[in-house]
Amino acid sequence: MRVINQFSARPAMDGDGVNIRRVADFNNTRFDPFLMLDEIKSDDKQDFIGGFPPHPHRGIETFTYIKKGGFEHRDQLGNVKAIRAKDVQWMSTGSGVIHSEMPLADADEGLHGFQIWVNMPANQKMRPARYEDSSETANPESTNDKGALLRALAGNWAFTGQSSISAPIQDLAGEAAIADLMLSPEAMAELQLDRHEFVGLYLYEGTLIGNNDAQSSDNTLPNDYSAGTYLILDSQDLLKLQAGPDGAGLLLFAGQPIKEKIVHMGPFVMNTQAEIEQTIKDYQEGRFGEIPL
């Protein structure tokens, strides 16, 4: 693999005092069509018990993936769903949603999960909202003979030379695809992702050992990577990954950049400042609706 750029997740707080690690780029949109990744990982309830009370979104898609524990999702469309380990949830917010995500009362073993924001093209930002999850359809998995397990979360994925697996959720903006790749100690995996213009990964645990051909664009980035690292990769180069002695877990991202200027304010991502101001007005005047009691 050839690394184009490297980022580190930064400590942050969101919702009602939830401690997270975040990687985001709203100014330069270098993750296009992706905008942001939040990771929640703690065995201490005080880090996440406040959850994410009702809040709005417009102009983006939110994609939630749970590794451990769970959330209860509620929205103004009437959806009420428990999202647990291995589940994903997708909200294409379009013209607007109000939703909440609160830790499940029976999730006593901590919480580990991710929320990913995907941008929407201008001509879709005001269409009706959509909701899907995988609570009733398991996300498919594939293994290779080198100690790797690939779980498709959105879109289609395959190890090099193997059959493709297709996640239940397929229609993310920017043809975005997301997968969870779990590597045993010193395991290896190869994927060919050259059909996508953007490819990135987020290492959430363990260590990745660089291959001999793993070079950054300016030859200054290291070849070994630790948890909390986000890499932008050359999509035309074969993705060759090897875990360190403690194994590795990483999220893979692929898609087609939307290549539109955006304006971001809190939970809203639009294309102009005037659209942001209209969004705030619509929300303040109650046009997003309310979550049913």
Rank of each mutant, 00 (worst) to 15 (best):
M182Y: 09
G228H: 09
G228Q: 07
R195L: 14
T207Y: 07
G247S: 06
E186Q: 15
N211P: 07
V199W: 06
Q215E: 14
A187M: 07
Q236N: 15
E205C: 11
R195A: 12
G249M: 05
G247M: 05
D180Q: 04
L233G: 04
L221A: 14
G247Y: 04
N211G: 08
P245V: 10
D237S: 10
F198I: 09
E197H: 10
P267S: 01
H264A: 12
Q256S: 12
E190M: 08
K259L: 00
N223P: 14
V263K: 09
V269D: 00
P222N: 15
N212V: 11
M270H: 08
S184T: 13
D237Q: 10
K261Y: 12
K261R: 13
L238M: 14
Y204A: 06
A187L: 07
L250T: 02
L201A: 10
D218K: 11
L221I: 15
L203Y: 05
A243I: 03
F253W: 04
L238N: 02
A248D: 00
A248G: 07
D224W: 14
S235E: 05
T272S: 14
D237I: 10
P257T: 06
A189E: 02
I178G: 07
G228D: 06
S226Y: 05
Q215T: 13
F253P: 01
G249I: 02
L208G: 03
G247P: 02
R195Q: 15
Y202D: 09
Q256Y: 05
L193Q: 05
Y204W: 14
E260V: 07
A179R: 02
R195M: 12
A179Q: 01
L181P: 03
I209C: 08
G266S: 03
F268K: 03
A254V: 09
A243G: 08
D213Q: 12
D234C: 01
T229K: 05
V263E: 03
L181W: 00
D224R: 13
N219G: 12
P245L: 07
G249Q: 07
G206H: 03
S235G: 06
L250N: 02
I209P: 08
I232A: 06
T207W: 00
G200V: 08
E186L: 15
N219R: 13
A227R: 00
L252M: 13
G247D: 08
S184N: 15
S216Y: 10
T220Y: 15
F268M: 05
G210A: 13
I209H: 10
N223R: 15
L191V: 12
A214N: 12
S216C: 11
A179D: 02
L239C: 06
A214V: 10
F268Q: 06
L208E: 06
N271H: 06
